[in-house]
Write a protein that binds this DNA or RNA. Structure first.
Length: 176
DNA sequence: CAGCTGATTGTTAAC
DNA sequence: GTTAACAATCAGCTG
């Protein structure tokens, strides 16, 4: 939210990212078979138009963990300024975590997913409206329709809401 | 000066 | 079913 240019602009270049031949994890930038057009559907715009209301993907359990991990990592490694360093360290640590450790992160990620779906619904509504003609006038109708979807469901994070990982702890993940 | 790059994995959506 | 791409981060480098 602070700086939307740093990441927002970097991702678009992914289209023309160079393939990694390293036998690491394998970047997902490998075009399997670009028949003709790699672009999903664009008349002339090369990059997907960024919508102001487009819901960004909810951070996966790994990202949730990474957020906290970054603080710890940077706290103990103030000299490290490479984002890749945190990514590598975080990834390694993530694998080291057991299902129980990831449980709280996954739980949060799962909840985010639900919210994401909600945002997606509202987003689709807006898209339908703006796609019609001009969104300037339709602004009043869009809010009228989406209001039912973005219902104030009250945040139920009272006290013991995300503590539901007590019976599913059988898989402790024994490292081979 | 300003925008893009890197690295991690997960999740989602399109094909 | 599978693949591709994007989600954050931040400083450094290049055009």
């Amino acid at each position: 939210m602070k700086n939307a240019k740093g990441k927002g602009a970097a991702k678009i270049s992914k289209e023309a990212l160079k393939p990694v031949d390293d036998g690491k994890v394998g970047k997902r930038k490998a075009p399997a078979k670009p028949s003709k057009n790699s672009a999903p559907k664009a008349k002339k715009e090369k990059k997907p138009k960024k919508d102001p209301n487009k819901p960004k993907r909810p951070p996966s359990a790994f990202f949730v963990f990474l957020e906290e991990f970054r603080k710890t990592f940077k706290a103990e490694n103030p000299n490290v300024k490479a984002v890749s360093a945190v990514g590598k360290a975080g990834g390694e640590k993530w694998k080291s975590l057991s299902s129980a450790e990831k449980a709280p992160y996954e739980a949060k990620a799962a909840k985010r997913k639900v919210e994401y779906e909600k945002l997606m619904k509202a987003y689709e509504k807006k898209q339908a409206n703006s796609a019609d003609d001009d969104e300037s006038d339709k602004s009043k109708s869009e809010v009228n329709d989406e209001d039912d979807a973005s219902e104030e469901e009250d945040h139920q994070e009272e006290d013991d809401d995300e503590e539901e990982e007590e019976d599913e702890e059988d898989e402790d993940e024994d490292d081979d």
